[in-house]
Design a binder for these strands. Structure first.
Lengths: 256, 256
DNA sequence: TATCATTTGTTCGTATGTATC
DNA sequence: CGATACATACGAACAAATGAT
């Protein structure tokens, strides 16, 4: 591999291989040339070849199997679609396709970061309920986290008594308290942390999709925050969009 | 570093460092111990240390700077929030915070994959309009792609004439054609490809957030597909959730 | 069942280049 | 200029998984 370019050899090699993959020359499921063949074809050392393949792995383009080879990843469509809708009929807000796969863990925390911003309560205390869920059909795992600020818990005693109740019960408690609810949901993604990869599954380079639902009262005051995390390799999130009366004003970080 | 664990040394090292970072012992912005110090502290070789740090980089935990050191990444909140709402007032469906930063590129393609599924038109032809947009305030770049199936173009001649019109004009044309519109939007994410990292920005390990809006007519027949891609480091997507009358039925891949 | 070639995984050592301060 | 620190690249050895003989 001649150093025509000034970019590193392993990047050039990775780009060439990525080109062959995205162009379809290397079809999904097919094995890449072995390291030995790439060493011969491009006349580089093994560490260089391995660096290039490592790069392709972190881009989610290939998947290496010990003793077999590196294979072009099939980018299957996400298996699970989480439909983020709410129903108000009969005070039921259930998503029955998800079942708990572990006992919920209740703890307390000082609100900070994104959660504090979304709840509009910096440095206040909140109850946190963590629960690992699983999709009933596919077994795909989803991490669920619920933030209940202390003043919301004070306002709705049922929440303080049983914060680890099913989500539908939590919403029902809010409605029972005479509140009129509204919801805003934000979606973001980031690289998976080690423990998330272990808990949620997903291969190297698969990001984690994070969706945060803020439930507010009629005045727009945030009441609770629900957070779902799922490996983007297995799941996606779906929304039904309804036309709004007011012009859609774009919001920036900080005002969220 | 004793091999108590059976996992590779560089993974153990990466996990230990990741622990120090996520626990807050290494605060954001702070420099990691240099490679030389890590070699001394953990008594491993330089390639092992570098492999561990490379791992942290691909997880988006650290950012290495040539000649200075590796630093704990500040996970700033996304700068741009794309509010995915539609307004029907005055037939305006505009998102005026985005301005084109390049001329639109119009081409044709055979529908396949996710786009074909969402449009319910496998192997049919469609007009594709690609355009790189930028957020007016921040300059954050967003890739916009619009799919117009041929039969929709035939039904709404304005689309065939000017497929590269602003999105608001495209929606206006659909309304002018007497159609009643409804929208569903799905969000997913995946690792950034090399060209996407170049076009959209974002560091190593930052995924790309992809949101796809299907516009359908009153019968639920998909008309067009709009696709936005943004680096998850810079942007997130926000939805306003309205209660639905019917119970939320979860949909699976294949029926999307 | 056992052996062997192939292939990737891990780890070491070493040398040189280049950016920063 | 020199010291520090990361980036790139090569070579070598052994381990471990796989599949075929």
């Amino acid at each position: 591999m001649a150093a025509i370019d000034r970019s590193p050899i392993y990047v050039q090699l990775a780009d060439q291989l990525a080109e062959r993959i995205t162009s379809g020359e290397y079809e999904p499921g097919r094995m890449l040339p072995s390291e030995a063949r790439l060493i011969a074809e491009f006349e580089v050392s093994r560490p260089t070849v391995r660096a290039a393949i490592g790069h392709l792995r972190s881009m989610g383009l290939v998947d290496s199997q010990h003793g077999k080879g590196s294979f072009v990843r099939r980018h299957d469509a996400p298996v699970v679609t989480i439909r983020r809708a709410v129903t108000q009929r009969g005070k039921v807000f259930t998503d029955d396709s998800l079942t708990p796969s572990e006992a919920p863990a209740v703890s307390r925390t000082q609100l900070h970061g994104v959660a504090a911003e979304l709840l509009g309560r910096a440095d206040e205390e909140a109850i946190v309920v963590d629960q690992l869920m699983a999709d009933t059909c596919t077994g795909v795992r989803i991490a669920h986290r619920l933030f209940i600020p202390m003043d919301t818990a004070a306002q709705v005693p049922q929440l303080a008594e049983a914060p680890d109740a099913p989500v539908s019960a939590v919403y029902a408690a809010l409605v029972d308290a005479g509140l009129t609810l509204s919801w805003t949901e934000t979606v973001t993604a980031r690289a998976a942390l080690p423990d998330e990869r272990a808990a949620l599954g997903g291969g190297d380079g698969d990001p984690v999709l994070i969706t945060r639902r803020v439930t507010a009262d009629a005045d727009g005051r945030p009441l609770i925050l629900e957070e779902l995390r799922i490996s983007a390799a297995h799941g996606q999130v779906a929304f039904r969009i309804a036309p709004e009366k007011a012009p859609a004003a774009r919001r920036k970080a900080g005002s969220v």
